[in-house]
């Protein structure tokens, strides 16, 4: 039994790393722009299709494709902020919510037009390989995905701590007006923050591809996870998202075994409501 639990914990933690990468972008955008990106899951879906195309057309390995996906998604996010988000920043939440929902609707249905509803995946030589540690199996693509996710999150945290733009982003998250008075170019910084958030979810899509399959509505599945992670982590703490991502991965691992893999969303949701009732600021949330 103990072996089973440890095995579940390994699987869960590895998955949790990807969940964390998927969610830091959402947290960053919410923390800085005070906008919930309801199209977050759809950005993930597009990145998965991009990775799939790069692999199936050009034969580029999913992990290698990060070099393309991250900058492309940064620019993608940057442009979306400039065109769609910026004009709505001072509008009531309703307009912001439905702008991103509209975007998600367009994305997922364009995907349906181009790719039909088929499930697609990439088959690499390591897709099904495992490393065996004593009694435990560790899936190679999960391990690599986990390592990349943690490395990227660490890089993001360092970037926000050390660089000028990173500091500007954090300043904006704290106090929009004061940051403005300190001479920070608010709109440029917002666009950069949005771009980074989208790049993060893009990266998550790429490392997820060898593990999962993509279809046009895959986004709604993962956006639910991302929402729970963000709420659990305290909606304005990136470190919180990391911890919460790993926690949700673990919970998914265990609930899949002890309850039912089909009911994992229900478990998330119950958790979601419980957090809102008992600790609305999340694990590491401020304010």
């Amino acid at each position: 039994m103990l072996d089973v639990i440890i095995q579940l914990a390994i699987n869960g933690l590895l998955l949790g790393g990807i969940y964390a990468l998927l969610s830091v972008g959402l947290t960053l955008i919410f923390g800085v722009l005070e906008i919930i990106n309801f199209a977050h899951g759809e950005f993930l879906m597009i990145s998965m299709y991009l990775t799939f195309l790069l692999f199936s057309v050009f034969g580029i390995d999913p992990y290698l494709s990060l070099v393309i996906v991250i900058p492309v998604f940064f620019l993608f996010g940057f442009a979306v902020e400039k065109i769609l988000i910026k004009p709505l920043l001072n509008d009531p939440p309703l307009n912001q919510i439905f702008a991103t929902i509209g975007l998600g609707l367009i994305f997922s249905n364009l995907a349906l037009l181009f790719f039909k509803a088929d499930f697609r995946t990439v088959k690499t030589f390591y897709s099904n390989s495992n490393i065996i540690f004593g009694n435990y199996f560790v899936s190679v693509p999960r391990l690599i995905a986990f390592a990349i996710a943690i490395a990227l999150i660490a890089a993001l945290l360092i970037y926000l701590k050390k660089t000028f733009t990173g500091k500007a982003i954090r300043a904006l998250a704290q106090q929009r007006k004061a940051a403005m008075l300190m001479g920070i170019d608010v709109h440029r910084t917002y666009a950069i923050a949005f771009g980074i958030g989208i790049a993060a979810v893009g990266a998550a899509g790429a490392v997820l591809m060898p593990l999962f399959f993509v279809f046009p509505t895959v986004g709604s599945l993962f956006s639910l996870i991302a929402f729970v992670v963000v709420i659990l982590g305290g909606y304005n703490s990136l470190l919180g998202s990391l911890v919460a991502g790993l926690t949700i991965g673990l919970i998914e691992g265990f609930s899949g075994f002890f309850i039912s893999p089909h009911l994992k969303e229900v478990v998330y949701f119950v958790l979601f409501i419980f957090i809102l009732i008992f600790k609305p600021t999340g694990l590491l949330g401020k304010r």
């Binding site: 769609l84 004009p87 307009n95 439905f98 702008a99 929902i101 509209g102 998600g104 367009i106 249905n109």
Partner: peptide, 10 residues
């Protein structure tokens, strides 16, 4: 629909 929604809120 998505396009109408975005144009409407903007």
């Amino acid at each position: 629909y998505g396009v109408i929604l975005i144009l409407a809120v903007m």
